[in-house]
Design a protein around this nucleic acid. Structure first.
Lengths: 191, 191
DNA sequence: TAAAATAATCAACACCGTGTACATTTGTTT
DNA sequence: AAACAAATGTACACGGTGTTGATTATTTTA
């Protein structure tokens, strides 16, 4: 957001690099993707790559950051922004729709040869939202709370992974419903 | 198990390689660990490494396989082997104790720069156990079942991750109790 | 539109880890 | 002691890396 509009050339370059990179990630793990390959696939000089990214990891991180930004945006204003004590079904649905619309990248980031650090980051983001929602409405036994939220967040992300893996045969609404049901049921005993 | 007892030299070599490797993994991600480093740390010739492993990934996979073997072993005979319909608290406790006793490797495999494929494998193993336990005792609505089991398995593994991350300040019993409580509560509504 | 600024290209370079080969030395087993 | 297996040392070609400096192309500005 703080970024200036970039040169058309830069926009184009970053775009082809990104496309080539993702195409490669569909076929092999990050660790085996070379800068050379990326540039050949993008039809770009290798020196140009280094003008924008330190290495393929750096490139991946930038893609991941974009993703986190988008998701936290959706999380922030689910049904309108207010904390109801329950996680807003609307927020969950919106996130799932976003995942659906970006299935290609999501599958790469969350499944197969994805980045575990990133998975933990996403899980933490979602977990934090659970914490915010629940501690606002009900008192929490601190000791157990962390584990419970972690359980719920990991479980939710795991559901999303399975959903992606299976080709998203269910609607975001269906999945959101199931997810909230599991989550709230898990909490009901503790607070 | 099917392996013959190895030459003392081989045992020693594999041991020092493994130790050196793990030490490196504590400091940097697998993708940045070189064969050269491993051998220098192990005080071993590079050619010797290649006599036993194809590359560092291969080495990691062998370590992971050992781990999975152990865990599936504990899962199989929790309270004695029979399926009660509930997941045996004893089995869970034993797994957690194993994790505790091998905290160093577990932390490397499951947290930080670990292998996402491996995480999914472990999750699948645990999920399968949930399936076996529950479908044995109660009828399941097939459509939702997969997601629910995935949720529970991911949640459980997530709890273990957090436990490791925090330095295992709680006993295996405490964690096992919390885990089963979350899991069974999640199911109670569906079956 | 011309000039200044920025981006991409091209070619060349030293560097380093890789994987393999083969002869040699060390140790294990029979 | 002899036969075998494992580890060492050395050397090699190969390929990707990251950087540099000069050149060409494109965008911005004055």
């Amino acid at each position: 957001m703080g970024e200036k509009k970039q040169d058309h050339r830069v926009r184009f370059t970053k775009l082809v690099i990104r496309d080539s990179f993702i195409a490669l990630l569909k076929a092999k793990p990050l660790s085996k993707v070379t800068v050379k390959e990326i540039c050949e696939g993008a039809g770009i000089n290798r020196a140009t790559f280094y003008a924008h990214y330190a290495d393929p990891f750096d490139l991946l991180h930038q893609i991941e950051e974009e993703f986190v930004e988008e998701v936290t945006l959706y999380i922030g204003n689910g049904a309108g922004g207010e904390l109801t004590g329950d996680i807003s079904p609307d927020a969950v649905r919106k996130i799932l729709e976003y995942v659906q619309n970006n299935a290609e990248i999501c599958d790469i980031l969350l499944n197969s040869d994805g980045d575990l650090r990133f998975l933990q980051e996403i899980t933490a983001v979602i977990g934090r939202q659970f914490v915010a929602s629940w501690t606002a409405s009900k008192p929490v036994k601190k000791a157990e709370a962390e584990y419970i939220f972690q359980y719920s967040a990991s479980g939710s992300v795991g559901m999303i992974q399975k959903w992606l893996e299976g080709g998203m045969k269910h609607t975001p609404e269906e999945l959101a419903g199931l997810m909230l049901r599991m989550t709230q049921r898990g909490y009901s005993d503790f607070f």
